[in-house]
Amino acid sequence: MLNTVLSARNGQASGTPEAAVQVEGIGKRYPGGVEALKDVTLDFPAGELTTLLGPSGCGKTTLLKIIAGLLDPSKGQIRVKGKQVHGPGPDRAFVFQDFALMPWATVLRNVAFGLELRGVAKAEREATARKYITEVGLTGFEQSYPHELSGGMRQRVGVARALAVDADILLMDEPFASIDEQTRRKLQEDLLQLLQIEKKTVIFVTHSIEEAVYVSDQIVLLSRRPGTVSRIIRPNLDHSTDLEAARRDKAYLDCVDEIWQTLKQYLV
C-alpha cells in the first residue's frame, strides 16, 4: 500500500467547513462476499468538481451509487450538507453512463422527468425543461426521441435532466465513457462552461486520467479492490481564460504523468 501524499484525514480536516458531501468510513461488501470498498473517508468540497479515479473494479461507481443512495453501504455513513442521508434525495441528481433515457419519451419529457415524478404541473416542468435543453445546446430537438440522437446528444439530455431538478450535487457516473473521443472533448468543455453558470458540486467518476485532470478541481485516486483512498490530488488548472489552452498546459501534462505513475502499480 502506497503512502499517500495527502491522507484522507488531511483532506477531511481541510475541507470540513465547506464540504457538500462527507463520506465516513464507508465499506461495501456484496452478498457474494466480494469486498468492493473498505473504510473510505472523504470530503467533497462544495462548488467543486471532484473526480473518483482508479483502476477498473476499484469500486468507484459503487461509491458514487452509495452517495446517490442507490446502494446501501455495509458500513459507515454519508452526510450531505452535514446531515446523514439514507437513500436518494432531491439534493442529488445522477447522470448515467448509459444515459438511462426512456426510449418511448421525447427529449422534452425525458428532461422534465425528474420534475414529473415530483408532481410539478406539466406547463411548468416543460418550461423548466426547455430552459435546460437550451443550456445544453439541444434547442430544436425537444420533440425528438432518444434513438434519433447521437450518443453525445443523448448524454446532453441526461445532463439537462439532472440540472432540471435543481439539485446542488451532480453525481456523474463515467458520463462520457461511451462517447467518441472528439465529442467527449467537446462535452468536457461544455460541462465546465455549464458549471460556471450553474455552480454545482460535482462528483465525477471516470477511468480516464486525462479527463480527470482536465475537468477536476480535486482528484481522488482509489486503490484496487477493496477500494480505499490512495491519494488526493488538486490539478489547479486555470479554465477561466481559455478552455482549449488548458490541455496544452504544462501543469496538465505533469499531473497526468504523476497520476499515471501512481496508478501504474495497480496494473498487473
Binding site: G69, G89, M102, L117, R118
Partner: peptide, 26 residues
C-alpha cells in the same frame, strides 16, 4: 433496464410511479 430503474429511483420515484412510468412502458 436496471439503469432506467436506478434512474427513476435516483429521481425519487415512488414504487407506483416506477411501475407505471418505467416498468410498464418498457
Amino acid at each position: 433496464s436496471p439503469s432506467l430503474l436506478d434512474m427513476s429511483r435516483s429521481f425519487m420515484a415512488t414504487r407506483r410511479q416506477q411501475i407505471v412510468k418505467i416498468i410498464l412502458p418498457s
